[in-house]
């Protein structure tokens, strides 16, 4: 088997007395979509926040292209081309789309001043590809719809040549049409060779979009299955019962 694009090995973290993530290992190949499933509070967001540099893990290792890496803050993750679309949209509501898209990585002029015109032009280019209807470039993102805001968040991840993309419930706040748009985008990015971690509660959608699904419960990894090897019911029972297909609960 070839080297995974990214591998998280034996990751643990606790908050006070809660083991939010307990010895979990997951990985993703180039051009692969790996789904993370589990009830609320299972530890999915916490796990990917460790990868994004938002939380510091207690133990475990992270490998990119087989090489061990340290991710201590969001900047480290970005430097490794790991981009994240957070469950709670990490946008500054008072800034416009371009300022949000480039936040922390502004294009500057020769004098070191931020080049808003250039950034807006680049934003227009990428949005033309992701969401051609998007026109409201000079308004604060607070005045945008959920779908428009989500496309800003996605554009931000895509623009900077992500190799590994983390999407935490990207469609939770979206309507049917916008959800379909995000699904198409995931397929396109997968075709471009990105490794994608996708978190969603929509099992059917996950069976369609993902190559593999990892199920978590109470901070632990129940198992990882190729979608062609399991049925939707198998996955649901993993989520609910916390056991692999064919296992008994006591095992």
């Amino acid at each position: 088997m070839s080297t995974p694009l990214l591998e998280m090995r034996n990751i643990s973290i606790h908050f006070g007395g809660i083991k939010a993530v307990d010895d979990v290992s997951i990985d993703v190949m180039p051009g692969e979509v790996v789904g993370l499933l589990g009830h609320n509070g299972a530890g999915k967001s916490t796990l990917i926040k460790i990868l994004a540099g938002a939380y510091a893990k207690d133990s475990g290792e992270i490998y990119v292209d087989g090489k061990k890496v340290e991710i201590n803050n969001p900047r480290d993750a970005r430097d490794l081309n790991i981009e994240t679309i957070y469950q709670t949209l990490a946008l500054s509501d008072n800034l416009d789309a371009a300022s949000n898209l480039f936040l922390g990585r502004e294009i500057t002029t020769a004098f070191g001043l931020v080049d808003d015109t250039k950034m807006e032009a680049e934003s227009r280019k990428i949005m033309a590809r992701l969401n051609p209807n998007f026109q409201r470039f000079s308004e604060p993102v607070r005045s945008l719809s959920g779908g428009q805001r989500q496309s800003v968040a996605i554009a931000r991840a895509v623009y900077f040549n992500a190799r590994i993309l983390i999407m935490d419930e990207p469609t939770a706040a979206l309507g049917v049409h916008e959800t379909a748009m995000v699904a198409d985008l995931i397929k396109e990015l997968k075709a471009q060779g990105l490794g994608i971690f996708l978190i969603s509660h929509d099992t059917r959608e996950m069976m369609e979009l993902c190559d593999r699904v990892s199920v978590m419960k109470n901070g632990q990894l129940i198992g990882t299955e190729r979608v062609e090897d399991v049925t939707e019911d198998d996955v649901l029972s993993m989520i609910i019962m916390g056991k692999k297909p064919g296992e008994t609960v006591d095992a």
Binding site: A52, A54, N73, P74, R75, R78, T84, Y86, T88, L89, A90, L91, S92, D93, N94, L95, S99, L103, G104, R105, E106, T108, G112, L113, V114, D116
Partner: peptide, 23 residues
């Protein structure tokens, strides 16, 4: 027109978002 100023407003609008953006 400076990053410093941009980050001040970003932090005021959403401190968590600013932090997650590497500020």
């Amino acid at each position: 027109k400076t990053r410093f100023g941009r980050y001040i407003f970003a932090m005021g609008g959403n401190p968590d978002a600013a932090e997650l953006s590497g500020i």
